[in-house]
Each structure stands twice: as C-alpha cells, then as structure tokens.
Amino acid sequence: MLLDSYQRPKQLISMTPLIDVVFILLLFFMLSSTFNRTKQIEVSTSSGGQPSQISESVKLLITEPGFVRINDNVISVNSDEFTKQLKEYAASGDKLFLAARSHISVQEIIHLLDSAKHYGITNLSLSESVQP
C-alpha cells in the first residue's frame, strides 16, 4: 500500500528533547548543590580605652600559631585549660581583647575567633597586631 511506503526509519531518541532534558538536569543539580557560600564573623573594633566597671577585660595574645598568652601564661589553644578559660569568660561576660603578634596569619586569628564564638563569647574585639 501507499501508506506502508511512508514509514520513515524510526529514530530511537530525537536530539532536541534530549538536549532539553539534559539542560534541565544540569540546572537542577547546579541549583540543588550548595555552593561554598561566604560566611561571616562579627568582631568589635572598639579599643581598650575605657574599661567598663561591670565586667573585667581580658587580653588574649596569639604569640605563636596555636598558642595564646592569657595573663602571662602561654597555653595551647587545643588544651583543656584553654577551653575551660573560654567557658569561664563566656559565663562571666568579660570583655575579650584579641591581638596577635604581627607575623601570625589571619587564618590563625579567625580560628581563635571561631572557638571563642563557639563557647558563646560575644563580647570580643580585635586589636592591632603586636610587634614581637
């Protein structure tokens, strides 16, 4: 019959819808994957000029990577003692002044800010670096 001769060789998958679907899948995964979003850390910049009467002010100095000087004691930031100190400061609401020696990297400072925030210290300010 004439109708039978009209049969085209059947394509398994046509190209255009395939591209459409692939693109939509691509967009879906781009949106659903979480990109490395930028986070923030808040620090106060106020100087230690006026110590308030209510709360004490404590000075923390990063002397070496991983080591902090508090009240003339140099302790490791990974030690239990340091954790205990931070918890105490968080509980008492003391104002913390964080400074670093000038050669300490920014990442090190952020690391300490991080742990301070982690233990609930909100009263924290960042001071200028100290020459060794």
């Binding site: 923030q40 910049t45 952020i110 800010l113």
Partner: peptide
C-alpha cells in the same frame, strides 16, 4: 589588618564583618 582596624575605629564604627 592593622590599617583597616585603625581606620575603622577612627571612624567610630564598632562592628566589622570578616568574610570567611
């Protein structure tokens, strides 16, 4: 960071956001 901290403080701005 010193020049930034210094000038921000001089302007009387108390908060600084550090991007991480």
């Amino acid at each position: 960071l010193d020049p930034v901290l210094n000038s921000v403080r001089k302007l009387g701005i108390k908060q600084l956001l550090i991007a991480t």
